[in-house]
Design a protein around this nucleic acid. Structure first.
Lengths: 143, 143
DNA sequence: TTTTTTATTGCAATAAGTTACAATAAGAAA
DNA sequence: TTTCTTATTGTAACTTATTGCAATAAAAAA
């Protein structure tokens, strides 16, 4: 598995950075939650488990983890940034009514990405897309 | 044209809202800029032309214009929200090195959108996507 | 035109996000 | 193990974002 705490330790040490309780705590919270969390959620969860860090540390540690490609960041519907472990590439459909999240395999998007790279000359980097919409259930209610 | 000041006035009045100098000023700034601006840029530009509003008004007016589909909001690379007039649907490729923006016609994305709607049952709503990458020029420099 | 209604704005207070810098502690060297 | 180096964190200050409420003014009615 490419997203275990052991992997985190290895990656950080390999690059000459330091393995701190703060970094492990944030990583573990993301690991246990499974999904994606915004900064305030991460801070609250770490505090609840063991108050080993402050708000600015959450802020900087997440940037650090993203830079080192251990964590991925995505845009939530409201403009907030959400964080999750850098596992397999995927995207999300978000129901703007009930908040349900549906995961989409990157393979489904691959073709359009490749096509865009060809037609524009751009080289696309780590893009995690969140598309907004209505889930089947909320469509029924709305109609 | 579906994005003229006259259209704004018509749309707002038709729904029983009020046409205020503040709303017109913000709309005009977006109209003249052509591209997309973040909130602080909009505030600064309006202030430079005619100081008719405050920061909270920019905040609420933009929400108002987005709700009424006169303005569209999109995610900038850094998590900030950018605003632009609701003209034809399109998306963006953003160069993370030099900041260049390339517009992509919605037609290029249409197929993948339709495919996702079919396979998931979700109904996708107004999605303006910004994909991050490196433009051809910055790829050369980097290599 | 004047009055009335209430959507909209500005002011002031609050909350959240961010930065600078001194203090701390992780890992290397002795 | 102890000392040393400096990456990393916490504190505190600062800036930006957001909200509540009273004051204002746009549009309708008289």
């Amino acid at each position: 598995m490419t997203c275990s705490p052991a992997h985190l330790a290895e990656q950080i040490r390999a690059k000459g950075f330091r393995l701190t309780p703060q970094r492990m705590a944030i990583f573990n919270v993301l690991h246990e939650s499974g999904g994606h969390l915004v900064r305030t959620e991460i801070y609250e969860r770490v505090q609840a488990l063991a108050p080993v860090l402050t708000e600015p540390t959450v802020y900087r540690t997440l940037d650090f983890l993203v830079e080192n490609e251990l964590v991925r960041v995505t845009h939530a519907g409201n403009g907030r940034l959400e964080y999750e472990l850098a596992r397999h590439r995927h995207h999300h459909l978000h129901c703007s009514a009930c908040g349900a999240e549906l995961e989409i395999a990157h393979e489904q998007m691959q073709k359009i990405f490749a096509h865009l790279e060809l037609s524009t000359g751009y080289r696309l980097t780590e893009n995690h897309i969140t598309l907004m919409g209505l889930c089947p259930h909320c469509q029924e209610i709305g109609d």
